[in-house]
Simulated assay, not measured.
Amino acid sequence: MTSNPNDSQTALYHDRPFVLDLFINSAIVAIPEPALDLVGAFLPALLTAVLIQPDPVRVVDSGTVDILRGALSNITYNKNIAKIVESLNVTEIRADLIYLSGEEPGSSIMSRNSMSSGALAAANWLQEQFEGYGASCEQIGFRDGWAPNVICDYPGTDNSTGVIILGAHYDSRGRPFPDRAPGADDDGSGTAHLLAIARGIKNHNVQFKSNVRIAAFAGEEQGLVGSRAYAKYLRAQDANVTLMIQADMLAYHDPSEPMQLGQPDRYALPEANQLIANVSRLYAPELTLGWTDGCCTDHQSFTEQGFPATSVFERGLDGGDIVDPMYHTSYDLVDRPGVDLEQLRSISKVVFAALLHVSGYELGSSKLE
């Protein structure tokens, strides 16, 4: 873990790392801000850096919660939504994923560490892809020398200020070779799910009633740095975020277990979790639902700022622990045992269907329920 450099206790040790407290499976460590970029290179694979947020977590506005409760009360199976989400294609998902992981011969992305040239190349490639699917994109920097967040918008037709955000982080970690950080599962899989949904929007000429935003974050592996900067920016703008859904690690599947969808047991709005659960049962009954106590990913940044948020994960059995043996290593590749692109597709169907239900939509000029 890392603590905020503005915290008074951390400031006492501003020039060097310092252990503030030890626990059985974790520690609180003060790290000078310039050293954040080194965290991923030296942490063991199974340890994750999480920045401690010194500010109090904001409460979600009751009106926003009511919007989600209204959506929940009206969710029933919709054959048009089913048709749209069933069109998601594993072959296309795989093509995106092997490009991001550097397994595609035409890809030059050997690492997506937030401070690498590969991450910058990935940001440019992602913007090009999303814009090709009809979104309007920009790259928003948050720290000198780091890859930017890639933020892409689909304007709604109802002229409201409300926005639904789908997120994933495109940066990665790799050990024992920091220069080879393919991050196929963590979190190329979540990023590929964003691309699959964007492609579905384009292929079906979906026009959303609410504003929809796709956010590919950098800096997650150093402690949610990119998403925290962006969520704070949105709070400062008093943005009207209706829902935020983060996807992190969707593709690994232990062959001895069923395909799964794990939901967070913390930092998530209960109504948002219930929405995902209900939609999953309607459009992806092949998934076994469960809870994960895995911590943390970028939805936490939005929860801290009082925005309604949740996440989707690849495992929900036995506490939803991470079972991918190549997590945070240089061997997190697509073409290896256990990577299940059908599971990735199924979770993508759930997120896409949830988006369509909450936003409302039209297909071309035909208004649908």
Rank of each mutant, 00 (worst) to 15 (best):
A82W: 05
P182S: 12
E138P: 00
R199I: 00
S111T: 15
T48P: 03
L261C: 08
I151L: 06
G338Y: 01
A11M: 13
E362I: 10
Q129M: 06
A268L: 04
S87T: 10
G290P: 09
L341C: 07
E286F: 02
N124I: 11
T10F: 14
R345Y: 01
F18L: 14
E342A: 09
S73Q: 12
S117L: 04
R175I: 15
T310W: 01
S3Y: 10
I276M: 14
V57G: 09
A30E: 03
F23D: 12
T288N: 14
D158L: 09
L12C: 13
R228P: 00
M110N: 06
S172G: 09
G102M: 04
S73G: 13
F18K: 15
E131F: 00
L282P: 07
H357Y: 15
R112K: 04
I322T: 12
I93H: 02
L368W: 15
V241Y: 00
S3Q: 13
A218N: 11
D153Q: 04
R69H: 00
P264Y: 07
T161I: 06
S107A: 03
L88T: 14
W291S: 15
I214W: 10
G223L: 04
G188L: 02
L194N: 05
E138I: 07
E104M: 00
Y327L: 08
V57E: 13
D298Y: 01
H169T: 13
Q300W: 01
K83C: 06
R143P: 00
I201K: 02
V85Y: 05
P182I: 08
G63I: 03
S330F: 01
E271P: 06
Y99G: 13
P5W: 05
I322S: 11
T310K: 07
S330M: 03
L20D: 08
D293N: 08
L243F: 04
F352Q: 10
L289V: 09
G294Q: 13
L275Q: 06
N4V: 09
F302D: 03
Y13D: 13
D96A: 12
A216D: 02
A272V: 05
L363R: 15
R336D: 04
G141N: 14
I98F: 02
V19H: 14
A82T: 10
A284S: 15
M1P: 05
N240T: 02
L287F: 04
S256F: 00
F130D: 02
I98D: 04
S26D: 12
F217D: 10
Y230T: 03
Q127I: 02
T191H: 00
V334T: 09
A181G: 12
W146C: 03
A35H: 06
G63R: 13
G219S: 07
R58F: 03
Y283W: 08
R180E: 14
S73L: 12
G219A: 06
D37I: 15
V323F: 02
N78I: 14
P178V: 15
A284K: 02
A181S: 15
A121Q: 10
E257K: 13
